[in-house]
């Protein structure tokens, strides 16, 4: 089983501390979503894991090997997209992938089959022999994903992989990520601004703020929120549905926090049975609530 261990890592840029004594253990295959506002330290953490920068203090171990001291061994089973990578403009996608595959230890024959495999997943097979200098942003991002997936890495580090893409490009990348995630043979660390991406793809969510981890939980254990607006609330109150509903709008709106697996219709049915006249119901993810609570608190 693959593992990534971040042990007491800090990163300073002059007087600015981008990451403050972060410790984190990732040792279960699946997707880990890292959320946070700009400047939270997400990209810094991604760059540290992939040896693009080195920690000021602490260490990062991939499968037990220190990334800074022994990158050749530690990064052999890591694939990554950090920020918006560019490729050597005079090389084709095929040559780019062959280079990465060979550096990661693949033989020529193995690399040929690997290129075929990842090209299919990421749908780059249509432009394999074109020089990357002629690619659009979306094509480069798909190639970056293909490069990240080559040689079946144990750990895939993705820093905002859909950033700057049009809706079609975003959907293509997400579909590819979904296919990879379903295979469940790697740890995917996904840093993003988009809560919807984490909800759709990840099993664990980490929220970062001001260089620290402020929340870390399985997405399944995060409750969802149900916002119910009434024409008329139930006469006997709301406490039977949820212990602590949050009231807004002079009692005409109630926000219920319930477990993800509870079907919405059960709650609505119960309210209606007790005489409530419901205007509308809106479900939002608990991750969103958590995230907004943390970011909102900081802004306040």
């Amino acid at each position: 089983m693959a593992s990534v261990d971040v042990k007491g890592v800090s990163k300073n840029y002059g007087n600015i501390t981008a990451l403050k004594n972060v410790s984190l253990s990732m040792n279960t295959n699946g997707c880990i979503g890292i959320l946070g506002p700009n400047g939270a330290g997400k990209t810094t953490l991604m760059k540290l894991i992939t040896n693009i920068i080195k920690p000021s203090t602490g260490e990062i171990l991939v499968n037990g090997t220190d990334v800074s001291n022994n990158p050749s061994a530690a990064l052999r089973t890591v694939g990554s997209i950090i920020e918006q990578p560019e490729f050597y403009t005079y090389l084709t996608a095929y040559e780019t992938m062959m280079f990465v595959c060979r550096i990661k230890g693949g033989t020529k024959e193995y690399c040929k089959s690997e290129i075929e495999r990842v090209s299919e997943i990421t749908e780059v097979n249509g432009f394999l022999n074109r020089k990357t200098g002629t690619y659009s942003r979306g094509m480069k991002q798909r190639l970056a994903l293909a490069v990240a997936l080559i040689n079946n890495p144990d750990v895939i580090v993705l820093d905002e992989p859909t950033f700057g893409l049009d809706p079609k490009g975003m959907s293509d990348i997400r579909n590819a990520l979904n296919r990879i995630r379903e295979l469940r043979n790697s740890i995917i660390i996904l840093s993003t601004h988009l809560i919807s991406e984490v909800k759709e793809l990840c099993d664990r969510v980490i929220i970062m703020d001001e260089g620290s981890i402020v929340y870390d939980s399985d997405t399944d254990s995060v409750e969802k929120s149900l916002r119910v607006r009434f024409y008329e609330a139930p006469a006997d109150g709301l406490n039977s549905i949820a212990n602590d509903p949050f009231m807004e709008d002079g009692g005409k709106t109630a926000i219920f926090r319930v477990r993800k697996e509870v079907p919405n219709y059960l709650i609505i049915q119960d309210l209606m049975n007790r005489g409530a006249k419901i205007r509308d119901v809106e479900e939002s993810s608990g991750i969103e609530e958590k995230y907004l609570a943390i970011v909102g608190r900081r802004k306040d």
Partner: peptide
């Protein structure tokens, strides 16, 4: 400057 470092620095090579 051309951001190719993001492509080559994470590779398992000295």
């Amino acid at each position: 400057e051309n951001k190719t470092a993001y492509h080559i620095f994470p590779l398992p090579i000295r």
